Computed example of a mutant assay.
Amino acid sequence: MERIEKEELLEEVMIEHGDDLVRLAFHYVKDQETAKDMVQNSFIKCYEKIELFRFDSSLKTWLYRITINQCKDHLKSWHVRKVSVKNILEHAVASILPSTEDKVIQDVSNQEMKSFVQTLSTNYQEVIYLYYYKSFTIAEIAEVTGLNNNTVKTRLSRAKQKLRNLMKEDRIYD
């Protein structure tokens, strides 16, 4: 692939998927600027490795996989593991910028649901986010996360049950 073609493809991909990838990365790293860095690294990797892309899947799912791997690598890094959970949470709350979804979903019940989802483990947040907020199919989630379909279904089912239990405790879901 020629350099000009690669640059045009990269620009198109950045425009089409950039915001979605930042939101995905934010769910992992809980910091807007770090999320943007993760996505920038993903686009660099996409540019460098586009010749290796076999088109067995869509470019979108490949980019999601690259971004998730970038985030997981970041979270495994020495620096991130040494930072206290309290500091991460305080910084995340202070750095959240209103996204398109937040502007659309402004009523109280949806905000409560979002807070319930954020109490779930990353494994459950991941499948809830991709399934409900990004409208991915089970197969697409499996491809993006590297899990098998049954594992995705199980995590989705368990996440929904945990959400139901949380809502029952708050007397929202009777």
Rank of each mutant, 00 (worst) to 15 (best):
V117I: 12
V22G: 08
I138D: 08
L9I: 07
E143G: 08
Y64L: 03
Q70I: 02
H17V: 02
D73L: 08
L75E: 07
W62T: 00
I141K: 09
D20S: 11
K86A: 08
F55C: 04
V29A: 09
N69P: 01
I96G: 07
K76G: 07
I50T: 01
I88T: 11
T122L: 13
H17I: 00
F43H: 05
Q40A: 10
L75V: 03
Q40D: 08
K114F: 11
V104E: 05
S57H: 12
C46G: 04
E112Q: 11
K76W: 13
L147Y: 15
Q111H: 14
V85Q: 11
I44G: 10
V29I: 06
Y47N: 02
L59I: 07
L24W: 09
S42V: 00
N87I: 04
S135W: 13
T34G: 11
V13G: 01
V83F: 11
Y132K: 06
A142N: 08
L63D: 00
A142S: 10
N123Q: 09
Y129I: 01
K45T: 01
D20P: 06
K72M: 06
A35Q: 08
N123L: 03
V85Y: 15
E11T: 12
H79K: 06
M113G: 05
S115D: 11
A94P: 09
L63K: 01
K30T: 04
G146P: 02
S77Q: 10
Q106I: 03
I141E: 07
K30G: 04
W78F: 12
L130D: 04
E51M: 06
Y129V: 01
V144G: 10
L9M: 10
P98R: 09
A35I: 04
W78A: 03
I105S: 12
K30D: 09
I141T: 06
D73R: 15
K82A: 08
L21E: 00
V80T: 09
L89G: 08
K60Y: 14
E51P: 07
F53S: 02
V13P: 02
M38H: 13
